[in-house]
Design a protein around this nucleic acid. Structure first.
Lengths: 118, 118
DNA sequence: AATAACAGTAACATAGAGGTAACCAAGTAA
DNA sequence: TTACTTGGTTACCTCTATGTTACTGTTATT
């Protein structure tokens, strides 16, 4: 039968795994920029995002978008236009990231002040 | 003179940089585990952390601790014992991470349920 | 005299993240 | 006819993060 300490350690392991899950989904040099770009305009085409984010290549954008789609954060829609355009938008689940991103923003500012020394 | 759109874009860039600052300080395969270990016991020695985290090597622990120290999240104290022991604890600044880690935990659980499908 | 604990460091190896450049197919404007 | 736009894919290369193993110096224990 599990004693209190074992239970606590199990809980702790679960929490660690959860944090790592979050970090993994947000990781990749461009993910947060991409999410922000889409979020900012609600709906955004591939080439628009490519222009929004300076420095990103089409290869990386394609790759990161795929991962975001797999993680159900972003929805991809092919529009029947000429030439074909593809629209990306956040899913409901993607929207739930906003609190986290907002917290990361706040802490990042705090941290920079602390390190650089205002 | 900057128009509204330019100002907005500048703000957006700052926010992006802030998020990346946060992600960068938390990145590294073991950082969050290390922070959690120290946080859990308030004060923790090198070899204790090494035992707390399964899979980490002394090389990586040393390296990650250094980065955490540079980022003023962790304080290192050499104790005058035999043999010498080194104590690590969170700084006040390190403590401010708790909200973020807690948010990342919550979202990670939510996300896993969404992806695995409960 | 040999071994172990402590807190690391040094040397080397490898997988994977990310960068660069070229290419594809379909349609369209010059 | 040529070149451009759109949304990618493919091949190749490099660099960094991490892993593995062995080693350091000091003191205490056996």
């Amino acid at each position: 039968m599990g004693c209190k300490i074992e239970e606590f350690q199990q809980e702790q392991k679960k929490r660690m795994r959860a944090v790592q899950d979050s970090m993994d989904t947000l990781n990749g040099k461009w993910k947060i920029s991409i999410i922000s770009s889409i979020c900012c305009y609600k709906k955004r085409r591939f080439s628009d995002i490519l222009n929004d984010i300076e420095g990103i290549s089409n290869r990386m954008l394609s790759k990161e978008l795929k991962e975001l789609e797999i993680n159900k954060l972003v929805k991809r829609t092919v529009l029947d236009t000429q030439p074909i355009t593809v629209q990306y938008e956040l899913t409901e689940h993607g929207d739930t990231l906003q609190t986290i991103i907002s917290n990361l923003t706040d802490w990042g500012i705090l941290h920079r002040n602390k390190i650089v020394g205002k």
